[in-house]
Design a binder for these strands. Structure first.
Lengths: 212, 212
DNA sequence: CCAATTAGTCACCGGCCAGTGACATGTCAA
DNA sequence: TTGACATGTCACTGGCCGGTGACTAATTGG
């Protein structure tokens, strides 16, 4: 035999890709706790020195994840189709429920959001920025020339709904429970979707003024 | 002089109280990252050995915080008064906006919620349980004999709103920004409150069915 | 064939952490 | 007074971390 099965690769491109993939996996599976040079190197099966040589340390590695993230999200959400919505309420409904599914399915993005909440350092701020812009670009792409009804604060309403679903997804992944809902069951997720739909239609279906 | 100003107390009750207060402060100010035996002992100005002797280590200390937390929240929210609400919509409005103010003002509870999200270990699960039951008890206390309109899933709607406000409070404290909202300004918080009010009235003001 | 460069590994440093055993000192009762 | 106990402090271990210098080994260009 000429090459033992676990011989070093001696291929910088492949090794860099291995390290990036390992970093993504460690972060997605173990969270930002437990994310570090040692853990990534162990996962990638190489020496941590390579992380310093090829990425300049944790900082560069995190930036590399951020760079990958944009394309990753684009690909993951590309297959969004169907008949174009005919009203702003339907558009918001599709976007917000689509966000829920995408966010629930992507453990890595969840961990980045969590990291951002728990440790708002400039390092993770850039990573979170990549996540944010990727999602915003995706939402903007599905938008036609529909505009929200006059008199309602659509950005605030949408932010509220996105915040709610993000929080529920994070709680569901962490403890499975939030305010009496059992987010380990798909039944309660259906209740969540129905409640979100109720609110979207209630807010955008017609004008509802708020009297102080 | 007979007693130097920083002499040891030799008073177990006071020392325990000092340690508990230090633990609360460290957790509230520094987050669960940086929370540990060494940090608490430094903050309390005593040796960490006392934490092991009096509380049995981090676990017992966390339990002590949880025990304090219930009474702390009860006191902090006791002064909730005003005319009794005349409809479920108004009741929900008061409870949910009251939750927002209470949660925004209490850094310790925020950090516990965050800890629960990022590190769902059995230890912090008990602490989070104390937080959860305290808040639920508070919400139940303000309730009269009002019941939600028929045909709406009030628990899901309320959970959605609480989740939204909790997420916004956490994001506001961490980065100050969420989905285009600048949560460092009270102006945008007013928009958030208005949006929540819009949704509450839209959902509870009259029946709105969700057609599949 | 040989030297320079590149890919990869190893051993080590200092720092912070949780946890523990031994010690000093104050208090109180017999 | 003296001995037992409670209070508090110190010094240490072992482990994991991020980070770095020195090393080996394969490839490549001349």
């Amino acid at each position: 035999m000429t090459t033992p099965p676990d011989a070093p690769l001696r291929d910088r491109h492949r090794t860099e890709a291995l390290i990036r993939a390992a970093a993504r996996d460690v972060l997605a599976e173990g969270g930002f706790l437990g994310f570090g040079v040692n853990a990534v190197a162990r996962r990638a099966g190489c020496d941590k020195q390579l992380i310093y040589r090829y990425f300049g340390g944790l900082e560069g590695l995190v930036d590399a994840i951020g760079a990958d993230l944009a394309t990753w999200i684009e690909d993951s959400l590309a297959a969004e189709s169907g008949p174009p919505p005919t009203s702003y309420a339907l558009l918001a409904e599709r976007l917000i429920l689509g966000f829920l599914e995408a966010f629930r399915a992507n453990r890595l993005v969840q961990q980045i959001a969590l990291w951002e909440l728990a440790d708002p350092s400039p390092l993770v701020a850039r990573l979170a920025g990549a996540r944010s812009t990727a999602l915003i670009r995706w939402m903007a792409r599905t938008r036609g020339d529909l505009s929200p009804p006059a008199g309602v604060d659509a950005p605030a309403l949408n932010a509220l709904l996105i915040a709610a679903l993000q929080q529920l997804a994070l709680s569901g992944a962490a403890t499975g429970v939030f305010a009496g809902l059992d987010l380990r069951t798909e039944a309660d997720w259906s209740r969540v979707r129905a409640a979100a739909t109720t609110m979207i239609r209630g807010a955008y279906g017609e004008f509802r003024g708020v009297k102080p």
